[in-house]
Design a binder for these strands. Sequence first.
RNA 1: GGAGGGAUAGCCAAGCGGUCAACGGCAGCAGACUGUAAAUCUGCCGGCUCAGCCUUCGGGGGUUCGAAUCCUCCUCCCUCCA
Length: 405
Amino acid sequence: MIYFDWSELARGTEEIIPEAQVFDQFEAAAKGGEALTVKAGFDPTAPDLHLGHTVLLNKLRAFQDMGHTVVFLIGDFTGRIGDPTGKSATRKALSADEVAANAATYEAQIYKVLDAERTRVVFNTRWLDALSTSEVVRLAASHTVARMLERDDFDKRYRRGQAIAIHEFLYPLFQGYDSVALAADLEVGGSDQKFNLLVGRTLQQAYGQTPQGVLTMPLLEGLDGVEKMSKSLGNHIGIDEPPDEQFGKIMSISDTLMWRYYDLVSSQPVATVDQYRREVTEGANPRDYKLGLAEEVVARYHNKRASQAARQRFHERFAEHRFETDMEPTYIHVDREGLPIAALLNQAGLTKSNSEGMRLIKQGAVHVDDHRITDSRIVFSPSRELLVRVGKKRIARVVLTAGAI
RNA sequence: GGAGGGAUAGCCAAGCGGUCAACGGCAGCAGACUGUAAAUCUGCCGGCUCAGCCUUCGGGGGUUCGAAUCCUCCUCCCUCCA
């Protein structure tokens, strides 16, 4: 059963190109009862999915719910080139085994969002490896350098006098060819992919197909609220992370960023989110809505029970300032001279260097058994277990021993 | 083949002989406050036996009382001309 829901289809999108065509296409599909092919490409590396990826996955899921088929393309060929969008240069080719392993990891994760019944996973080496040189030339002939330079990042780099390697021009062409090989009706991607997706249209036309529709989603900002979410920047929330981590990280995003997350990662209906927005504008505490969002995310990637427990622990920790203290103690050997506090912190793994410890002591961040340490020269001798804390998040149990370890 | 530009702490980016452990922005950390790990304000943000000392500005060598700053060689990156 295929149905058509334009508001859900268009929800949160950056652009739909060309809007009228896509509208007609999906409306007609619903009438004719014929499922359309929705394509989205993914990198063969980085199999750790995070909330940023789910923006796209959520959209794909929406199409599945409407009855269409999603082609989950793993770009094992294009991955060797490396999309020039970032700074990445040519990547080294992954072995077939590595690709298979990464793909397995994908499959283990994507079905937390996608419907396995309506998902087809494909690899683009299948047709790109088979492409003859003359076919590559034909592809290359389909676009001019000027056209390539329309792409924003190419244009910028060119103007700034930064290098652009020839093979980087091939990337969009190959990605576009994927759409030809799949006879895609619609391609969904991040807004940074716009140019590549449009190349797909042009190529399909050149190969006598109906050009695919293009739908772009905004890039989700990471925890810092500035850079886009990515594992390498360390500002991500992984869907496999433990409940407490996920919960805490969502609570740490700014009030402003929260709305972005509501739009792009929450599955609350648009009307509900608008309602929340109004309530906050009228004076409701944004914290409560952030708690709700955190709970939704944890429930989705773990379960309801875990999300409630995470919420409870969050409350204990930050509202009541009770700390999680049931970790394994660290044993540290102390010799005759005793152990200076800064060294203690360092060896307990709470600080990166003694200097950092010294600074934190000066800032009043260090507590031992709930007493603030103000004297950086204090020295510890062997003792029973101590509870050592730096700031609100770093905490350790420490046992100072006299004998050899 | 020729000409030129560049390499600075997690990132971006100043500095062009001393006052530089190195302006500024972002990210990070801490304290205060609070409505949360939000917002705001303040401090920190190489290392150490920490009010003092030590090692840093692509790498080596040199000039100088003194260099991130000048010279030289090397490595890497980029642009332009052919």
